[in-house]
């Protein structure tokens, strides 16, 4: 990371000042849990083999000894995880355990948070993304992201979907191109249609592609955001609680969609909904308070017969 400027330092020290009570509290909770469990149990809390998941396919995303700090706050601790390609991986765990943080490590969105500091390695397609000279544009084209709150641009539906490809120069609709006869509005329309169909939204909006996206319902907006992410043709799709703001019908539409997508894409999804994780994912990673990855295995195994007592407690709703 670049050298922080003096102003950065002031803001950072300010933010740690204001965060002080919270961080002390976190520290207190941590030490409490350390004292409340016996030495034997805390040995048992984390075991290499619980997260050592073996699978047949190839690895698409691999994190190795990943640590993330927000100032003094150690949000992710020594995460190592291999995510198989063309499958759905669910990340579950109590609030504040670092699921979103981990997700943001995969497309380096943590770079945008000034306080965040990432150590360790993440490989996408076998290439280390935390090295100098990584092309963030290319990385984020390959690793798309859908946020917890639907966040379409205040533009037309069509412009929302074609935004990424257009800015990357994949379709040319600029004035000069149009004047030179190279305009690709047909190609644009085709791409928009394809992405919207993939996101199971096309039928609902096909007759009003020119309307503003803010006029859509929440569920439609979220599927539009998925379409927008798909339009740049990513390999990996990161989803941070994509259904948390949606009603059951919209949720089930999105779940079906995710299952479909997993045939072509590697989907990593954060969810607070155990049933949802059990329904749609192939493998599940459980993060627990403190920023540890505690267990990672086939979804069936995690939900039926977890190794860790704490994971079992969490899944059966006894804590978290």
């Amino acid at each position: 990371m670049s050298e922080p400027s003096p102003t950065t330092e002031t803001t950072e020290s300010e933010s740690t000042d204001t965060n002080d009570p919270t961080s002390t509290r976190t520290a207190a909770t941590a030490s409490m849990s350390g004292t409340s469990t016996t030495t034997g149990e805390s040995e048992e809390e984390l075991r290499e083999e619980w997260t050592d998941y073996q699978f047949a396919g190839e690895t698409h995303v691999a994190a190795e000894n990943l640590d993330v700090h927000y100032g003094d706050d150690h949000a992710l601790k020594d995460i190592s995880i291999d995510i198989p390609s063309e499958s759905v991986t669910a990340l579950i765990g109590p609030s504040g355990c670092g699921k979103s943080t981990f997700l943001r490590c995969i497309n380096r969105m943590n770079d945008r948070i000034r306080a965040a500091e990432v150590d360790g390695s993440v490989e996408v397609d076998g290439v280390e993304i935390y090295q100098d000279g990584v092309d963030l544009v290319e990385l984020r084209k390959r690793v798309g992201m859908v946020f917890q709150q639907p966040n379409p641009f205040p533009k037309s539906i069509r412009d929302n979907v074609s935004y990424g490809p257009r800015k990357h120069g994949d379709i040319r609709t600029g004035l000069i191109d149009r004047l030179l006869g190279r305009g690709e509005s047909d190609a644009e329309l085709e791409l928009v249609e394809r992405a919207l169909k993939r996101a199971a939204l096309y039928d609902e909006v096909s007759d009003r592609l020119g309307d503003n996206a803010l006029g859509l319902s929440g569920g439609q907006q979220q599927r539009l955001c998925i379409a927008r992410a798909l339009a740049t043709d990513p390999d990996v799709l990161l989803m941070d609680e994509p259904a948390s703001a949606l009603d059951p019908i919209a949720t089930s539409k999105i779940e079906d969609l995710i299952t479909d997508l997993s045939e072509e894409y590697t989907v990593v999804i954060v969810t607070h909904n155990m049933q949802q994780a059990a329904r749609i994912s192939d493998q599940t990673a459980v993060f627990l308070t403190g920023g540890h990855l505690v267990e990672y295995d086939d979804t069936d195994k995690i939900f039926e017969n977890p190794e860790s007592q704490r994971v079992e407690d969490y899944i059966s709703g006894r804590f978290g």
């Binding site: 544009v137 990385l139 984020r140 798309g144 966040n151 935004y163």
Partner: peptide, 10 residues
């Protein structure tokens, strides 16, 4: 809006 755009690699 900025996050969404950045996540698309813009």
């Amino acid at each position: 809006y900025r996050d969404a755009s950045a996540a698309l690699g813009v």
